[in-house]
């Protein structure tokens, strides 16, 4: 496991009396596309939230090993610190900055990679001006990669639904992550848009050297793009394997379709 970049060990998350995650352990290797699937309410998003610092896990440890850097524990760090360390995410229910332009949305993604402070903003010295020009330029380049450049000055809330999902990915990419966590990127997309998303996910992995970890309900998408799949149900990890293995796994089928009733 020398090349694993994210390790979750025995992660448990309790909300009062409800155990949303129970002893979940996973590890993601550099350059993989891994999917996390499971029925509704299985704890997938909770797991993402634990990893990205929205909630500190009740028990267990989550460690990251950014490429070329040493291993470190990230449980309980604030979300913005986790983002700085190179984990970026999108949200299940789109959370764009609705009243800001598409470009500004991506520019916010660059926030942690910029330095200028209050005094720089007021006096706008050479380095601040350079930085601002660069951030506009870089953000536009990111939009080009995701093919959203035609919307550049549009206010985010006016975008078509599919484009909003893509903008979330663009914004996350702007933080220069080594691991991109996508929470249901295809939700609400039509089949054509989903097909386009397939290509995009693989392309991002290949060109940006980003590892991708995604939650998805669209099984055809999951089976096409992912190299490995984790399945959770009622907060428990019930299976792990390649798409072909998962398709045949009786435990997974039971979780999704239910058990035959023996009368």
């Amino acid at each position: 496991m020398s090349d694993s970049i994210l390790d979750a060990k025995n992660v448990t998350m309790n909300f009062g009396g409800l155990r949303a995650l129970n002893n979940v352990s996973m590890s993601i290797r550099q350059g993989e596309i891994v999917a996390l699937i499971g029925p509704n309410g299985a704890g997938k998003t909770t797991f993402f939230n634990c990893v990205t610092g929205v909630y500190p896990p009740s028990e267990g440890t989550i460690t990251i090993t950014p490429p070329g850097k040493s291993q470190e524990v990230i449980n309980g760090l604030a979300p913005h610190v986790v983002a700085e360390k190179g984990l970026a995410r999108t949200f299940q229910n789109i959370r764009l900055f609705q009243n800001m332009t598409v470009l500004e949305n991506v520019m916010i993604g660059r926030h942690a990679r910029l330095k200028s402070g209050i005094l720089g903003a007021i006096f706008r010295d050479g380095s601040t001006r350079e930085e601002e020009e660069k951030v506009i330029h870089d953000s536009y380049e990111i939009l080009k990669k995701i093919e959203l450049e035609k919307y550049v000055n549009e206010v985010a809330k006016n975008l078509p639904y599919g484009a909003q999902r893509l903008l979330e990915i663009a914004r996350a990419l702007a933080t220069e992550p080594f691991l991109l966590l996508l929470d249901e990127p295809a939700a609400g997309m039509n089949p054509k848009e989903t097909g386009h998303l397939d290509d995009l996910i693989v392309r991002i992995r290949d060109t940006e050297k980003v590892t991708i970890f995604l939650i998805e309900h669209d099984m055809s998408l999951v089976m096409r793009v992912s190299e490995r799949i984790y399945v959770v149900d009622y907060g428990q990890l019930i299976a792990e394997g390649t798409p072909a293995e998962i398709k045949r796994n009786p435990v997974v089928i039971k979780a999704y379709l239910g058990e035959e009733v023996n009368a």
């Binding site: 979300p79 913005h80 900055f97 609705q98 993604g109 990679r113 702007a174």
Partner: peptide, 12 residues
Amino acid sequence: EDSVASEAMGVN
């Protein structure tokens, strides 16, 4: 616009 999302994007 969205404090949760902005935090996830690295805004302190």
